[in-house]
Amino acid sequence: MTPTSAFHLQMRPDNIGVITINVPGEKINTLKAEFAAQMMATIAEARRNAQLVGLVLISGKPDSFIAGADISMIDRCRSVEEAAGLSRQGQEVMASLAALPVPLVAAIHGACLGGGLELALACDARICSLDDKTRLGLPEVQLGLLPGTGGTQRLPRLIGVSEALTLMLSGKTLRAEQARRLGLVDEAVPQAILLQSAIERVLKGKAGPATLPTRERLIQAPLARHALFAFAKRQTRQKTQGNYPAAERIIEVVRIGLEQGARSGFDAEARAFGELAMTPESAALRSLFFATTAMKKEPG
């Protein structure tokens, strides 16, 4: 029996497609490997409409956009190659979304974390609700991993390398207004007008490249960038004492992408994701995550 898709397309009279993400039988949306085919099938369905103006991605869950990837699928990997393959599969889906000829806008309410934020980064624009439940971030470092579906490459190009490193190395989450000020989202609006705001953004057409703040543009110069990476590495080693390899790999992968181009960056990201997933540090942190999650489900 074919599993029910987590993605549902509704075409509006104005030829804008609204794709609702709603993982069957789950309280929150998390990304699973099998969703790659489902999402691409939904996009293909929308593109069969010759008059398609654009697409909006929105969650069908009350309190989450996408709360990250399903950690158990990483736990099931038995080799570096298998884990790196998961990363590459995700990168391919995100690249397909980023290459769409029509605008794609993420309408974010609730948790937008890890792979969920990476999905939003592949969109032309991001609009989030001002609700207190809305949180955005890339917390993979807390699991001994790095963003593995393009996040290490897209985030620096959107908000600048300095801010991107801070966000990824800390794993901290941002509220709506913080994300807007940083340029991570284009608008932060009341939840009641979230979908309408996203539709209005689609009607503006494809977005151009992000304009970085002056400070971040200055860091693009080779000497300044070299100094920034050296400082980030030194500070990270002081904090982690070499016990958290993910932090240094994040710095390395971001540097490769900026110095050698996005293609090299994506390759380095997938390779680093696969290698980190097999480390004892990541295995221990994932076990802790599962134990903590199980405790939260216990009554009382």
Results as ranks from 00 to 15, higher is better:
residue 121 L to E: 07
residue 296 K to C: 01
residue 287 S to N: 14
residue 276 L to W: 04
residue 221 A to K: 13
residue 164 A to H: 02
residue 273 F to R: 01
residue 65 F to H: 07
residue 255 R to H: 06
residue 12 R to F: 02
residue 6 A to M: 00
residue 168 M to N: 08
residue 13 P to W: 03
residue 206 K to T: 01
residue 197 S to F: 05
residue 18 V to F: 04
residue 20 T to P: 04
residue 150 G to A: 04
residue 119 L to Y: 09
residue 283 A to N: 04
residue 109 H to C: 08
residue 280 P to K: 06
residue 175 R to L: 12
residue 136 L to V: 09
residue 192 A to L: 13
residue 126 R to S: 04
residue 109 H to N: 12
residue 152 T to W: 04
residue 181 R to K: 15
residue 267 D to C: 00
residue 48 R to L: 12
residue 211 T to R: 15
residue 34 E to R: 14
residue 184 L to T: 12
residue 2 T to F: 08
residue 1 M to I: 08
residue 59 S to N: 05
residue 192 A to D: 12
residue 176 A to G: 15
residue 187 E to K: 14
residue 57 L to V: 05
residue 143 L to C: 05
residue 158 L to D: 03
residue 90 G to R: 06
residue 204 K to N: 08
residue 92 E to G: 05
residue 71 I to R: 06
residue 293 T to V: 05
residue 7 F to S: 09
residue 34 E to G: 07
residue 89 Q to N: 15
residue 118 E to W: 08
residue 89 Q to G: 08
residue 123 C to T: 15
residue 247 A to M: 05
residue 272 A to Q: 03
residue 43 I to W: 09
residue 22 N to G: 03
residue 20 T to H: 08
residue 190 P to C: 06
residue 127 I to F: 10
residue 280 P to G: 02
residue 79 S to C: 06
residue 257 G to L: 00
residue 223 L to V: 12
residue 29 N to G: 11
residue 170 S to V: 10
residue 156 P to I: 03
residue 277 A to N: 07
residue 105 V to E: 05
